[in-house]
Amino acid sequence: MTLLHTVNKSPFESNTFDTCLGYAKDGSTVLLIEDGVYAATTGTSAAEKIKNASGVTFAVLGPDLQARGLEGKLADGIKVVDYEGFVNLVAEHDSVQSWL
């Protein structure tokens, strides 16, 4: 079973991102959307946690990153997907866990 996790909250405002990381097993993907994209930016403790979470794939929704003016701040090792890519991720995984 592979899971796609989505996180839509800022890592600074809630512990959703940390909780999700605790549940993300090897082979799963974490997709950061809406205010969740702030976890994908350089110089944050969240980006540090992403770097250390081996075995988990991280992706970020491009349109949400662009909306927030942070395209140039994306941390290494995080894949950018568009809406079509989002749909593909859903299709590639067995199920989706939307952390709210």
């Binding site: 491009g62 949400d64 662009q66 909306a67 003016g69 568009d82």
Partner: peptide, 9 residues
Amino acid sequence: TKGQNTEAI
């Protein structure tokens, strides 16, 4: 932040 572009959302 500068450079915000919300077209796609």
